[in-house]
Amino acid sequence: MELLKRQETWNITYTHALGETASWFFVQLRDHAKLYGKRDAKSGRVLVPPRAFSDQTLEPTTDWVEVGPGGKIETFSIVYEEFNGLPPPPYAFGYVQLDNADTAIGGFFKGVDLTDPKAASEKLRIGTRVVTKFAEKRTGDVLDFWFEPV
């Protein structure tokens, strides 16, 4: 028998409130090209990106701490497959523990030739020192910065 199909697309717009903590972080990033974390007083850990509370201790975070621009790679991936709505491959991104931070923040890695996966993965191996680079025109999101191996 004839089996029918129907194409449907979901396209809904949301306006998410970022709250005071993330708003302050993104304003510093946008206007001053600086990155900050927030300290969980109970554990002493500096959370980057900053959260208003620690999900480990369930206590509000307290003081701001400037972090970076140096840091080290904690993990990475190099993507070779194309996905709808994501950048054209290949690209590398992952998580970096910035200096003075206790957790890692996600961002793109640039300045590494990704043609050969093996060679590229050596350049990005865990523990590699990186430096944060900032875009000249910043809009206040995590794409305003990226990391390059030193």
């Binding site: 959370l47 980057v48 480990q56 904690e74 993990t75 523990q97 206790d102 957790t103 890692a104 996600g106």
Partner: peptide, 11 residues
């Protein structure tokens, strides 16, 4: 934790 970056670093 929800945050992958909290599953690394220190502490």
């Amino acid at each position: 934790t929800y945050y992958i970056g909290d599953r690394m670093g220190t502490g």
